[in-house]
Design a binder for these strands. Structure first.
Lengths: 349, 349
DNA sequence: GTGAAAGCGCTAACAG
DNA sequence: CTGTTAGCGCTTTCAC
């Protein structure tokens, strides 16, 4: 048993407990707890012995026990309707990064459209294993919000209207207005809009803000909003491609520019135009919102909404609340910047 | 206080405990526990009273306490290198769905490339709050695998080589071979390949399997593998677009078909071809792998690798292991099917 | 079928 | 600065 590469002969069965570390370091469990958590005063000598012992034993605290005793779990829930769509997975990436950095675990709750909306809200979220929650683009109704809040934990929203909860987002209307004005300043007067699915208003309330900005800019410039040029797609490349292709099919009556509420749809619009033999931006200008990586190859002009950063900030806010250093529970606007590429240009003569 | 819409006047402060339910139902906490968990025998009368009381109190078990006492947490970890790339987010969606369905919580551990590889493996995964783990496309080295396994919990791999752990995946080489043969049977002899980044072999070992299948098919058909036509991209649309554009720029020496290891890259290749005035499939045929939604609008022929289903199956396997009903810890191959669209056609004369 | 009681492993007063 | 001592809320033998 001496030739064995592994350490001791008693390290097999049960994982070491706090008591084991205490015994080995010759102190009490209370001291071990303090030394390891950094809370409370411990002599540097004792601390060293404890750390040494803990290391030798390969000790790691049991989170269940720790959580039960302390009431805190270093675990934060992230609730979202989708996980396989660009905006959501990008926000998730940001949330995940910030949480890992802060030493928190991340519990993922995915509605999957509406499939588990009810289940997640009632069964999962309330098991009191969360210190806080981040809700991504979830326009919950008042009852549902109450439900979410009834856990008594801090909740921060991202990218969607969530009344009663501090929210991180871009200024949807402002972004819509600026995108439209960009086209107007290029001389376009026949400007169409590609917006999000209205049949899923619970999730895509954001698209209505962008549309509002578009209409506002058009009105301000004295330009008509042509209903036939207001397309509704499901935020996907393919759906936008198809709809825009239909829109552009009639040479006699089509816009010279399109403001798309998302880059994926914007890219689809560009492909549709090309497939009809139109040039971009010669015959049609397109601007999107997102800074989706796909836009690069299409030369898509866009407004970066910093999705990842939205997630990072949400975690920042949540941690502030947990630390008790939070200020007013105000909403926070993430700045959005233009990324001008080659899909927008002067209106054709 | 009677006009208050809410129930009792004592429901404010602390959440109800098992003891509260027991008191109200007139039984012991042991009976409540049995009745609510369904384990052990309880008279139907007692069960009814308990459920009634629990419902009235709005009782929900504390998972921390439950986990500490039972050693099980109904919480499963998912470890992956990215969360904002198609394959990973799609697998995650499948895992998430299956887990929610089974009543398990999902703890997300995201390496973010290599950024938190170490941290996740050492700090997070070992806190013993997981019943099992699913590792997605993580070619860990033996030491890391040991680390992952040292928690003593079942681990199932998805889509990547993970020696010592049962893995769910497609047959990479077979898929690469079939895709290539599809092109060969269409009469193509000048066939290029668009593969994954070799500089990230830890994650994209899968691409080497597809490449191997390609080379195998080419050899079997007596066709040469032209090194200049073997492109390496980073799995992104934009990078593929750029590289393929460069490849196709020389009319004198270019392939008539490309087998792309992913749909995103395949779509990028199609756009590149079009931007050079080439027609697809007239001048160039392209086939990808994935069934990525983006492929539809491009008419991209592909092989569906059922990414979501891979995630679902992984959960199935994990639950089997947890239930003790698992068979041999064998690897499992997910069938992959052709989805023929318009990007592949007869080789030009 | 049901209750009593002993923990699960850790934290947090409270003394000292 | 450190040890003692209660629990945290639930599960689970072990008797009855």
């Amino acid at each position: 048993m001496a030739a064995d590469g592994r350490a001791h002969d008693d390290d097999a069965v049960n994982p070491p407990r706090l008591q084991d570390v205490a015994d080995r370091a010759g102190v009490s469990t209370a001291t071990v707890s303090r030394a390891l958590s950094g809370k409370g005063h411990v002599s540097s000598r004792a601390r060293a012995r404890v750390q040494q012992a803990a290391h030798e034993l390969g000790f790691v605290v049991s989170y269940h026990a720790s959580s039960l005793a302390s009431g805190r779990s270093r675990n934060i829930g992230v609730v979202l309707p989708y996980v396989d769509r660009w905006y959501f997975s990008t926000v998730l990436e940001g949330v995940s990064a910030a949480l890992t950095e802060a030493g928190y675990d991340l519990a993922l709750y995915n509605f999957q459209g509406d499939r588990y909306r009810e289940t997640v809200l009632t069964d999962f979220l309330l098991r009191k294993r969360l210190d806080a929650a981040v809700a991504v683009a979830l326009p919950l109704d008042p009852a549902e919000t109450d439900q979410l809040l009834s856990g008594g934990i801090p909740v921060v929203g991202v990218g969607g209207p969530l009344t009663g909860v501090p929210t991180i987002s871009i200024d949807e209307a402002d972004v819509g207005r600026r995108a439209t004005e960009h086209l107007i300043h290029l001389g376009h007067r026949r400007i169409g809009h590609l917006g999000g699915e209205e049949e899923q208003p619970r999730y895509f309330a954001m698209s209505s803000g962008r549309r509002a900005g578009y209409e506002q800019a058009m009105a301000q410039a004295g330009l008509p909003v042509e209903p036939a040029w207001s397309l509704i797609a499901d935020y996907s490349f393919t759906d936008a491609y198809q709809r825009v292709k239909n829109l552009l099919a009639d040479p006699a009556d089509r816009p010279t520019a399109i403001f798309s509420a998302s880059d994926e749809m914007g890219a689809g619009a560009i492909l549709a135009a090309r497939d009809l033999g139109l040039t971009v931006p010669g015959d049609l200008s397109v601007i999107g919102i997102d800074a989706h990586p796909l836009g690069e190859a299409f030369g898509l002009t866009t407004i970066d909404q910093q999705a990842r950063q939205q997630g990072v900030r949400a975690v920042g806010r949540v941690l502030e609340q947990l630390a008790g250093t939070a200020g007013e529970p105000t909403d926070e606007i993430i700045p959005a910047h233009f990324v001008v590429r080659s899909s927008t240009g002067p209106a054709p003569a």
